[in-house]
């Protein structure tokens, strides 16, 4: 029994390693200074998909990502690790999308793909930490959701069993397919690149990338369809323009403030014995401790 699995993934700025130059002097984000990475929990989701592929021969795993042209990088990265291909959903019309407009756009792509058994996604992306796109895509596609998954325990008779990692414990739930599952960082880490697959897919490109690189589609790529990363724009999805991008986003950013920590009067100490002795005496004297 082969499954058809879609994995929702996002290329994100690596906000975990924000350096001094992450913000410009005008208070806007200097995206160029932040490396773009595969959202970590989306890799956890990919691994769950690949484990199912190992278990059920004939399973296909395809990535859906929405973003600029360069986001095709993460589709390739997923292919190096075992995914079969992917869809880059890209258009200027999507710019400024909040989670609702993003979910709407992705749900159109899912509906266009039409046939699938399982959608996997990371629980949340590190650039916003909202955890909203997964449940919202599930609602728009009209399927149930299972969030905070730590492990897909099995699929039998078209029913999936999932272990969820909650704040204070675990829960095991089952649900008939199709379903959307969001995967938690406590799930198994994603396998690394496979050398053979990396060789096979290193020249996988979207049409835009081919054009930009001036590469010949007719000659090389036409005979190797597995090297073409599918690319869909707004026109391919037949959307309601009022639901896209900034227009389709109910949340608006009213203002953004740079974080300035207001300095307190600080007593500066060293690791010297007399400094620590002084500190502990003072804390005891003012009844903070003791």
């Amino acid at each position: 029994m082969g499954l058809k699995i879609l994995v929702l993934a996002k290329q994100v700025p690596d906000t975990r390693n924000v350096g001094q130059d992450a913000m410009k002097s005008d208070g806007t984000v200097n995206r160029a200074a932040l490396p773009a990475i595969f959202n970590p929990e989306d890799l956890n989701a990919l691994e769950q998909a690949l484990q199912l592929k190992d278990k059920f021969p004939g399973t296909t795993v395809e990535i859906i990502t929405m973003g600029p042209t360069r986001a095709a990088e993460i589709i390739r990265e997923a292919m190096y690790r075992g995914a079969d291909g992917g869809y880059l959903i890209t258009d200027r019309a999507f710019a400024g999308s909040d989670t609702l407009a993003t979910s709407y756009t992705i749900s159109l792509a899912v509906k266009k793909i039409k046939e699938f058994d399982l959608i996997l996604a990371g629980r949340q992306a590190i650039d916003g930490d909202t955890a909203q796109v997964g449940p919202q895509v599930a609602e728009k596609v009209g399927i149930p959701q299972i969030t905070y998954a730590e492990e897909i325990k099995g699929i039998e008779n078209n029913v999936i069993t999932v272990k969820r990692r909650l704040e204070r414990g675990i829960e095991v739930v089952k649900c008939p397919l199709p379903v959307l599952v969001t995967v938690h960082s406590s799930a198994t880490e994603c396998r690394s690149r496979n050398t053979k697959l990396t060789m096979k897919y290193k020249r996988a490109k979207t049409l835009t990338e081919l054009q930009e690189a001036g590469m010949d589609y007719e000659g090389f790529y036409k005979t190797r369809p597995y090297l073409t990363i599918k690319e869909w724009t707004a026109d391919d999805l037949n959307p309601d323009p009022n639901c896209l991008g900034l227009t389709g986003s109910p949340t608006k950013v009213k203002n953004i403030e740079n974080v300035v920590l207001t300095a307190k009067e600080t007593v500066r100490l060293t690791a010297d014995d007399k400094d620590i002795d002084f500190l502990m005496r003072e804390l005891i004297a003012n009844h903070t401790i003791g």
Partner: peptide, 25 residues
């Protein structure tokens, strides 16, 4: 900048000393 006290140093050294001087005092 938001601390009332800052101790610049290695915590492997500082923490045991805090315990020591707390007990002593």
């Amino acid at each position: 900048t938001i601390a009332d006290y800052t101790i610049i140093g290695d915590l492997n050294e500082v923490l045991p000393k805090m315990i020591k001087y707390y007990k002593q005092n």
